[in-house]
Write a protein that binds this DNA or RNA. Sequence first.
DNA 1: TTTTATTTTCAATAATTATTGAAAGTTTTA
DNA 2: TAAAACTTTCAATAATTATTGAAAATAAAA
Lengths: 166, 166
Amino acid sequence: MNVKEAQQEFVQLWGNFGSQWGINKTMAQVHALLLTSDDAMSTDDIMEALSISRGGANMNVRELMVWNLIYKVSKTGDRKEFFVAEKDIWEVAKRITRERKRREIEPLKLHLSRLKELDKKEKGAGDFIQMVENIERLVSRMDLMSDTVMKAEESAFFGAIIRLLK
Amino acid sequence: MNVKEAQQEFVQLWGNFGSQWGINKTMAQVHALLLTSDDAMSTDDIMEALSISRGGANMNVRELMVWNLIYKVSKTGDRKEFFVAEKDIWEVAKRITRERKRREIEPLKLHLSRLKELDKKEKGAGDFIQMVENIERLVSRMDLMSDTVMKAEESAFFGAIIRLLK
DNA sequence: TTTTATTTTCAATAATTATTGAAAGTTTTA
DNA sequence: TAAAACTTTCAATAATTATTGAAAATAAAA
């Protein structure tokens, strides 16, 4: 297997993995392509590499820019836009986490919290509220966990503690 | 808002949230329904509550049993099967984590590891392998962290340490 | 055994989600 | 200013994924 083949396999792998976790497959593929590409790529390069349409390539690079996972760069003497990915994988993880938190976790927390505004006198209300509170606690803990992982990575001290917990 | 309305809203909420994370929407709804239901429900009860077909109800309860999130129970004098959910939300989280790990993370790790078997002499191979290794490290760390959080919940000592990291 | 109740399967269909590609829009160059 | 180069949009379409429902299978009762 040469590098190109390995890269193609990685692109497929990452696309499938992404879609299992609710991330658009093609977006994940574009990301994987840029992650493992040495130099900046234009929309045409991406279209060619992934056999996708111009529209699709454009939409996905724009979305990846919103997620802060890729950047636009320009080459002197070329009018086209080129794109490069953030290569620090921990930075990548942090940004994906941040975006999903903002889009999904925060609204979920809000919604759950509002669910507790029900007639507390009614039979069964207590149990229901308890369940919602337990879920709220779970979500918060998971949320905190992601912060902790990221923080641990940045700190030798916390990192050592985390490893102790294994 | 009464309990029933709140429950219905929760079912919708959980279904949407699940599908954003790659979990079948109806399966998440059946789970939410049973999670917030006081007594065991039959397939007919579930069909009625969620307005879904018999086939759908059956497929989803079976799948939830594979995930170990619900159990079959029987009522004396009734031939039907009834279902109840595991109500301990931490247990629920652990089981979902375990299942996704088994189905997705383990295969991903294997696949990533195999990607490193390429001609290392080729130009660019070093960078590619480095990227794959960084991703492997990230996946492992995320994986380990989920164990740690679950463990922390069960242990005052670990819990205290995790809180320190906040 | 036969009937009845219940569960399971799965081909057909519906619903959802992703993708295309050509037209419109924008920016740069001549 | 007009033409060329490039980017963006979005209605139409394709691909994927979820759902139905009726028939087959299974299990319990008569």
